[in-house]
């Protein structure tokens, strides 16, 4: 943004906020990557690291919340500043949820690592890759204030959903084939579901970014039409 705030302390607060959100985003991305690697490479110590690293993410969530509250109370932000703060308040929740999902995923991975694999993991890493990319893209869109990129995230979710459905059907087939598979297949199904949920959270972030940039709320177009007509 070319124009800066006359109040330099305010400017610094906003810069801090952006940086903290970026740091949190980077940590969350690493959590996703590591939790999936813990599964594919059967690396349980890495999974444990994911669990402990999530505390860092939680701490950042609290810090960002505090910072936002402070800015709201002291600076009475308006217009794009106001949209940035409200966006930040919402996306930290999404990022924190993504972190929790990565932890759940890591815990399932630890369980699975104790038994032989059901089959070579092919689609799950792809799904994880997609989810991680969605998160990354949404955060990039936030950082650069790029609503077009955020729209790409919204479109990209279909791909994620399709891949999840494919995995779901496959796992269903395993379960029908042999009831001994059910335990492992269910765990994998949970993992896939977690990844799909991560994608949903990335979409939430993207929607907030579009609001932040354009000042237009793109969420829930259906329910909005219900009240407007």
């Amino acid at each position: 943004m070319p124009a800066t705030h006359t109040d330099k302390a305010f400017e610094q607060d906003l810069r801090d906020l952006r940086e903290k959100l970026l740091a949190m985003g980077a940590k969350v991305e690493a959590l996703i990557a590591n939790s999936v690697r813990a599964l594919t490479e059967r690396d349980s110590p890495l999974a444990e690291k994911v669990v402990s690293a999530d505390r860092e993410v939680n701490r950042l969530e609290v810090e960002i919340d505090d910072l936002c509250r402070r800015i709201l109370a002291l600076r009475q932000p308006a217009a794009s500043d106001l949209r940035l703060i409200t966006t930040a308040l919402k996306i930290v929740t999404d990022l924190e949820r993504i972190g929790d999902l990565a932890v759940n995923l890591a815990e399932r991975a630890m369980d699975l690592n104790m038994v032989p694999p059901l089959a070579p993991y092919v689609d799950i890493p792809r799904l994880a890759d997609l989810a991680q990319q969605q998160v990354k893209k949404a955060l990039d869109a936030f950082v650069s204030g790029d609503a077009d990129k955020a729209e790409d995230v919204l479109k990209g979710d279909d791909l994620l959903d399709a891949l999840f459905l494919k995995i779901f059907n496959e796992l269903l087939a395993y379960m029908m084939e042999d009831s001994k598979n059910i335990r492992r297949a269910t765990a994998l199904m949970f993992i896939a579901k977690h990844l799909e949920r991560i994608g949903d959270h990335a979409m939430n972030v993207a929607e907030m970014v579009i609001y932040m940039v354009r000042g237009k709320d793109v969420r829930h177009p259906r329910s909005r039409n219900l009240t407007a007509e």
Binding site: H5, T6, P77, A78, A79, S80
Partner: peptide, 9 residues
Amino acid sequence: TEDYVTGKF
């Protein structure tokens, strides 16, 4: 307007 209401003047 944006610059004014956000204090960037």
